[in-house]
Design a protein around this nucleic acid. Structure first.
Lengths: 142, 142
DNA sequence: GTACGGCTTGACGTCGGCGTCAGGGCAAAC
DNA sequence: GTTTGCCCTGACGCCGACGTCAAGCCGTAC
């Protein structure tokens, strides 16, 4: 099969395949007119790459999986190097999720605080004789 | 104060301040020799920007906060536009955290599966007369 | 013949937030 | 006078995974 068909079957683009080839990740045979030629095994490699990419793996991180498959192993993660990538990724994910969770909490607190401040201002404005607003925001009369 | 001092006091670089200025986020007055001049209020604006940047906000997302402060409000998040940014960010964070959590789970399952497969192979290799391995990994005959 | 779709290589563009140089000016210290 | 330190503008570099355009070849259909 040629590059367009492979791209379509993997749900990607020809540009992407040429890029992978330029990175040495998915080399192609050439037929007589210079066109790239692929077979079903290439489709498997490509799908492995795409799956990992969808997980957020960098291209280089997919290499051990691809080489594992190319070495004849039944799965891309049948090799120790692939397992190492999995483990490293899990650690990165955990760290990132923890960090994002902390940020989320911080932002949530800031929002709650700011909303409470605004609510206080509004209440002040609504109560005649209440505290004076600090600026044009509250817009209360004096 | 000049650019170097402001940068130092905010824990950032002069390059960063010039960049913010180029984006219209933190304009500077100029003294007679063309040097940028800042005051304490600029330091407040800058610290607001930096805090949000540390939270992962994009530069454009910090703009409402900066403009809020510049308008004379006591806090960068005293304005509705800032609250909107907070809320949008919370949504993005929740979505991202959920997505990363799902990925983490998937990767964790893949790792567990792959490790189990390797353990099975090792056990097979250790037990004479056990099941045959599939490839040179286990190295068994057929 | 020619029009068309698919293929080729090469190279620049994208996005954000700066880093890092190149080349030169201003002011104070020695 | 000259060295030192800070300042200026302008412009390219970076990172990743491609998108997109340019210019041209291959083969088939009309």
């Amino acid at each position: 099969m040629r590059i367009g068909e492979l791209a379509a079957r993997a749900g990607t683009t020809t540009r992407t395949l040429r890029y992978y080839e330029s990175r040495g990740l998915l080399p192609a045979r050439r037929d007589t007119n210079g066109y790239r030629t692929y077979d079903e095994s290439d489709l498997r490699l490509l799908r492995q790459i795409r799956t990992l990419q969808d997980f957020g793996f960098g291209l280089e991180e997919t290499r051990p999986f691809v080489e594992c498959l190319r070495a004849g192993h039944p799965e891309g993660d049948s090799c120790p190097a692939s397992l190492q990538v999995y483990r490293r990724k899990l650690g990165e994910l955990d760290a990132l999720i923890a960090e994002l969770g902390a940020v989320r909490e911080q932002v949530g607190r800031q929002l709650a605080r700011a909303e409470a401040a605004r609510a206080a201002l509004a209440a002040d404005a609504a109560v005649p004789g209440g505290p004076e607003p600090e600026c044009e925001l509250g817009g209360g009369p004096r």
